[in-house]
Simulated assay, not measured.
Amino acid sequence: MPRTPDPVKREDLLAAVVEYLESHGVNDLSLAPMAEALGTSKRMLLYYFGDRRGLLEQALDASRPKAGNIFRDVTTADGLERASMTLWRALTRGEQQRSVRMLLQVLSLATTEPDTYGDFAKTAIALMLDPITAAFRSTGFTAKDSAARATLIVSGLRGLCQDLLISGDRARVDTAARLMINAAVRTVDR
């Protein structure tokens, strides 16, 4: 009778996998070097995650920015602005900062390797867009305008994250983030 996977060990291993991918990237993911670096075996990675794709899928899911929690109770323009700035801080200073590098890699790879990374990228975008779009809707914007404004927030912050990672110019990029968020939230054509 096969052993049941230990959920605590699986969670610990998943956290180590995410940390490894955040440091080493996802492009040339090979299980053997990862297993060696994590002090485990390729067989154990396969045991807990199924295959390379399953491992990548679970790692990406565990590391995605959690916009839903941030935008859940937003009902006002001020709330939208605060939540958007909270998301920005989480992506650039807080708990989600490290996952941004991996997310940007996956999104970039999806343009050249859509069969491998396209679904991951689409899911990542939807998981950010959906709660932010819902927050705009709850403040009174139309469905179409809400989707466009949420896209501005998600794509704008993603681009600014990339700029910050490359330039390191926090003051300039923080100012740009505030301006972009204010423009998305405060424009009055409802």
Score class of each variant (00 low, 15 high):
Lys144Glu: 15
Leu45Cys: 07
Ile125Asn: 04
Leu103His: 04
Arg186Asn: 14
Leu29Gln: 08
Arg3Ile: 00
Ala67Phe: 14
Glu22Ser: 03
Phe141Ser: 01
Trp88Arg: 04
Phe120His: 15
Phe136Tyr: 14
Leu160Lys: 08
Leu31Ala: 09
Asp6His: 08
Arg190Lys: 11
Thr133Arg: 15
Thr142Leu: 13
Ala126Trp: 11
Arg170Phe: 08
Thr40Trp: 01
Asp119Pro: 00
Asp6Cys: 01
Val26Arg: 04
Met180Cys: 00
Thr133Trp: 07
Val26Leu: 12
Asp28Gln: 11
Glu11Ile: 02
Glu57Trp: 10
Asn69Leu: 12
Arg98Met: 05
Pro7Asp: 04
Ala126Thr: 09
Thr86His: 04
Pro7Tyr: 06
Ala126Met: 08
Leu60Met: 14
Arg93Met: 08
Ser146Glu: 06
Arg190Phe: 10
Asn27Ile: 03
Ala67Asn: 06
Leu91Lys: 11
Gly25Cys: 04
Lys122Ile: 05
Ser84Ile: 01
Met1Tyr: 11
Ala15Gly: 00
Val8Glu: 07
Val154Glu: 06
Ala83Asn: 02
Ala177Met: 05
Met102Asn: 01
Ser99Phe: 02
Leu31Pro: 06
Ser63Gly: 09
Asp163Ser: 13
Leu165Ser: 07
Leu29Ser: 07
Thr76Glu: 03
Lys42Trp: 04
Thr92Trp: 04
Val173Met: 02
Met44Ile: 12
Arg43Ala: 15
Asn27Ala: 13
Ala148Thr: 10
Glu57Phe: 07
Leu157Met: 14
Gly25Ile: 08
Arg190Glu: 06
Gln96Met: 14
Val173Asn: 11
Gly94Ala: 04
Asp163Gly: 01
His24Asn: 15
Ser155Trp: 10
Ser167Pro: 01
Leu107Tyr: 13
Phe136Asp: 06
Gln97Leu: 03
Ala135Tyr: 14
Arg3Leu: 09
Met44His: 12
Gly94Thr: 05
Thr142Lys: 12
Arg53Cys: 00
Leu165Asp: 09
Glu19Asn: 13
Arg186Ile: 02
Ala147Phe: 03
Ala148Phe: 09
Asp115Ala: 14
Asp73Arg: 14
Val26Lys: 00
Leu14Glu: 09
Ile181Asn: 04
Ser155Gln: 14
Tyr47Arg: 11
Ser138Ala: 15
Pro114His: 05
Asp130Glu: 15
Arg52His: 07
Ala83Glu: 01
Ala124Gln: 13
Leu104Ala: 06
Met85Asn: 06
Leu179Tyr: 13
Gly25His: 09
Thr4Asp: 03
Leu91Tyr: 06
Gly118Met: 09
Arg137Pro: 01
Ala67Pro: 00
Met44Asn: 14
Ile132Ser: 04
Asp78Thr: 14
